[in-house]
Nucleic acid binder design. Structure first.
Lengths: 139, 139
DNA sequence: CTTGACCTTAGACTATACTCTAACCTCTAA
DNA sequence: TTAGAGGTTAGAGTATAGTCTAAGGTCAAG
């Protein structure tokens, strides 16, 4: 199949597929006489694999690692794949914690403010930003 | 004071301060005879204001809005400031929810995998990425 | 034979928030 | 006077993941 069909079947765009090729994630299996990219059913499965992994939150780099495991399973062990997942879990947990501390800081700002049509001269939000030290966001 | 001193006192770098000037967040109050940026105590307070707002999670654009409120408080009402905070709260909550669904998907991957030194030929993580439809991440 | 849909490439652009570089100028202290 | 610290500018680079454009080639149908 040509790139348009793969795009439709995989839910990616042709642009993105070419970009993935340039990035080394998914190379077309061949070329037609007129130099069109030709993809196989296996390529479609790979495209879907990539899309699922991206949706779950893996970066293109991490997807690349999965693909290299996938391309030669007997050479790899479960621990290889699990390590990727577990590292990602730690990262995501950390991001959630950060956002929760941001949320707390925002609530402290918002809850103290009347939010009414009073002049902002004594607005507690502006006040707090003038003087309060926010919980630092570490990353 | 010159940019270096302001950098030290505000916790921003001179680079960042110049960048903020270019972006319209914080302009130096004046220039010396030798064209050095000259900042006042008021500028220092503004720099700290910006830093606090950024730390809490506001974008540079949003900080700009806060600054325009702050620069003429009588013209604005509490609702203006609170609206910014509450919009941000919604955004952050949404991001947290997204990450939590990502985390769930990751746990589903990881928990099913033995993680041992068995060959990856039957690795459930790879399997899942081949076939399972992940919870889509909406944004 | 032409129209329109689809394909090709290299390369520029988007967004966010810096971060750094090169080449040059200024100021202070020894 | 000279070294070194610190200042100036425009502009490029970093990171991520696309997204789009221009200029052209290919193919099937009418």
């Amino acid at each position: 199949m040509k790139i348009g069909e793969l795009a439709e079947k995989s839910g990616l765009t042709a642009h993105t597929l070419r970009y993935y090729e340039k990035s080394g994630l998914l190379k077309a299996s061949g070329r037609s006489a007129s130099n069109y990219r030709i993809y196989t059913k296996g390529d479609l499965e790979t495209a879907r694999f990539i899309k699922r992994a991206r949706t779950i939150g893996f970066s293109m780099d991490e997807v690349g690692t999965f693909l290299s495991i996938r391309s030669d399973l007997p050479k790899h062990v479960c621990a290889d794949a699990k390590a990727l997942a577990d590292t990602k879990i730690k990262e995501v947990k950390h991001q959630i914690e950060e956002l929760q501390s941001v949320l707390k800081a925002l609530h402290r700002l918002s809850d103290a403010c009347c939010g009414g049509s009073e002049s902002a001269e004594y607005c507690t939000i502006i006040e707090a930003l003038e003087h309060e030290d926010p919980v630092p966001m570490q990353h």
